[in-house]
Write a protein that binds this DNA or RNA. Structure first.
Lengths: 140, 140
DNA sequence: TGACATTAGTTAGACATCAAACTATAATAA
DNA sequence: TTATTATAGTTTGATGTCTAACTAATGTCA
């Protein structure tokens, strides 16, 4: 019997994930950082020196939002902004040492999230979950 | 092979669902209403005459948030606020005629969301999806 | 070369959301 | 009965998020 409440479930799970991320970061002494900031930092851990536009695309947020998020990261000293010397429209975002030092913490938080999400499922269930979610994602 | 990206997928699907809800409402000429407003109205369709506290619990938002949301619905003429005559702390939220008139539209939008979410899945896959999401939900 | 279009990023304004502090009312206990 | 506690709701201030409008720089095409 299908209930048709998948949308509601997803919404609540998302809220739960976000709260868990924030509380895990706070456990590691990191305050004022929300998942979107984390998305940006994780992006930069994979590939440092990204432009605002690239960051916006990667984290699926608009440019004004990324401006706000990055400015906060700058004010916390985790990243810096540098203008391209050739094309003065472009700004590169780079990790500072302080920003790089957070990487292991993000790795750990990420692990914790995965444990929470997949922990209760078998291998087959986990694969099935990803399969279904990936298909779902393509419809939006 | 498990990728471990379920959290990210859920986040993006949630964004997609919300955008779809808003655009579907706009197609029906309803502007300025976000999913949380819809949650409140749908709550009231199931059981009219709820208190602010009850609404906050049902839609999983804080009381200040519900204050803002309900005030907007009042300004749009969809609901009214009435103080309890015995216990003056309590405020009841009631649907107006205009609010009740939206019910069929919300039914239709809800149907449209369900079609989008379940449309590409078999009966078994749909059930599996709900099973997995319900278990996931309990971990937060 | 010069007018127009495109692109990168920010600013402005709006709003949902939250935590913390507040007001007002009701309930309980000394 | 009075003082304390609990409850319902709002206000305040902060922040992430968006769209629309803006600035500044680059590219294009006549």
């Amino acid at each position: 019997m299908i209930k048709g409440n998948a949308a509601s479930l997803i919404s609540h799970i998302r809220d739960g994930i976000n709260k868990l991320i924030i509380s895990e970061l706070e456990k590691h002494g990191i305050e004022g950082i929300v998942p979107s900031h984390g998305d940006i930092l994780v992006c930069l851990y994979k590939h440092d020196n990204l432009t605002m536009k690239e960051l916006a695309e990667y984290i699926h947020r608009t440019k004004p939002t990324v401006t706000v998020l990055v400015n906060k990261l700058v004010s916390y000293g985790y990243v810096t902004k540098e203008k391209d010397t050739n094309d003065h429209r472009i700004t590169y975002i780079k990790l500072t040492r302080k920003g790089k030092e957070l990487q292991p913490i993000f790795k750990e938080v990420s692990l914790r999230i995965r444990e929470t999400m997949y922990g209760g499922f078998s291998e087959e269930e986990s694969e099935q979950l990803e399969y279904l979610l990936e298909h779902l994602r393509r419809r939006f």
